[in-house]
Amino acid sequence: MNKIISSIAICMLSITILSSCQQDKKLPFYGERHAETKRDTAGIEKIDTVYQTIPNWSFLNQDSVVTTNKSTDGKVYVADFFFTSCTTICPTMHRNLMTVYNEFKTNPDVMFVSHTIDFKYDRPYVLKKYAQKLGVDGPKWQFLYGSKDSVYTLAEKNYLVAVGEDSTAKDGYIHQGYLVLIDKDRRIRGAYDGTKEDQVEQLKKDIPVLLAEYKK
């Protein structure tokens, strides 16, 4: 009898220890940060860390409709930079991103934003054709067209993705294949190499973690 009681006790103890080990996982913050002193409502001074955020933007989407940051505000979204005539990394990136898209298709809190860096050729109707052929329909995945200046600045300064024109490259442009994860407060919370399957798998795991941060 004693044996049974003690074994039950051990079991209970180990379960308690194991369950207390679980920590709320949080994703890191990327980019510049600075400390800001603020007064809360009670008038007490508090120091807060302010992280880099994505500024307001406005571009034409694949339906030639002016699309702004309002469409992604309050949502977790994945952003990337590509162009439709790219034959090197973009097909792999979007093949992998398609699997993420399919997994979160029904989640209203998740969106996808692809910016073209080919300002000469990738007009909205070209993007529309591309999206349809890729198998994307609807507003959940936006393909955005903008001037060279606006898109390139946004990429390099805000999403921290290197892009550029390069006449020596096979398709005329070079860019990094990062899929950048942005939280509901426009902060950068992850960057995943879209050409590597294991990193894209990690993105699929991290999106629910990020969504859970807002559920409290």
Partner: peptide, 12 residues
């Protein structure tokens, strides 16, 4: 890149 690891292609 385009035709896939198993020759499955990429959409249309």
């Amino acid at each position: 890149n385009c035709h896939g690891e198993n020759g499955e292609g990429l959409g249309q």
